[in-house]
Simulated scan of single mutants.
Amino acid sequence: MSLDIFPTLPGLKWGSTRVPMHRTSVRETPSGREFRTRYFSFPRWRYKLAYEVLRETDGLAELKTLVGFFNARGGAAQRFLYLDPDDCSVVDQRLGTGDGAIRKFQLVRTWGGVVEPVYAAADDAQVLLGGALADPSTYDIGPSGVLSFGVPVAMGLPVTWTGHFYWRVRFKQDETEVSQFLQQLWEARSVELITVKP
Rank of each mutant, 00 (worst) to 15 (best):
G74R: 09
A125R: 00
P117K: 06
K104D: 13
G100W: 07
R79V: 01
R94W: 14
C88L: 06
S89H: 11
V127A: 07
Y119K: 01
Q106E: 09
Q106G: 10
G100Y: 11
Q93Y: 06
V114E: 15
E56K: 10
K64V: 13
D58W: 14
L107Y: 02
D58M: 14
P85E: 08
T65V: 11
A122L: 03
L54M: 07
N71K: 15
D124I: 05
Q106L: 05
V91W: 01
D84K: 04
D99E: 10
T110F: 01
L129E: 08
V115D: 10
G112H: 09
L95A: 10
G100D: 03
T97D: 12
L63Y: 13
F80S: 03
A77M: 14
L129Q: 09
T65D: 14
K104P: 00
V114M: 15
L66I: 09
G59M: 11
V127M: 09
L63M: 13
R79N: 14
A101F: 13
E62A: 11
Y82F: 12
D99H: 11
R73I: 04
E62W: 12
G112L: 10
Q93K: 02
Q93H: 00
G96W: 08
R94C: 01
A72W: 09
N71L: 15
P117W: 01
G68P: 08
L107P: 00
A76W: 07
S89K: 11
A72D: 13
I102D: 06
R94N: 11
F69S: 07
E56P: 01
F80V: 02
L54K: 06
V118P: 02
Y119I: 03
G112W: 08
V118N: 02
A122E: 04
R94Q: 15
Y82S: 02
R103I: 06
A72C: 10
W111K: 14
G75Q: 07
G130E: 03
R73W: 07
L63D: 05
P85S: 12
L63Q: 10
A61I: 12
L66R: 00
D99L: 10
F70E: 05
A101E: 12
R109G: 02
G112T: 10
G75A: 10
Q126D: 11
A77N: 13
Q93I: 01
A76S: 14
V114Y: 06
R109I: 00
G112K: 08
Y82D: 03
F105K: 03
D58H: 14
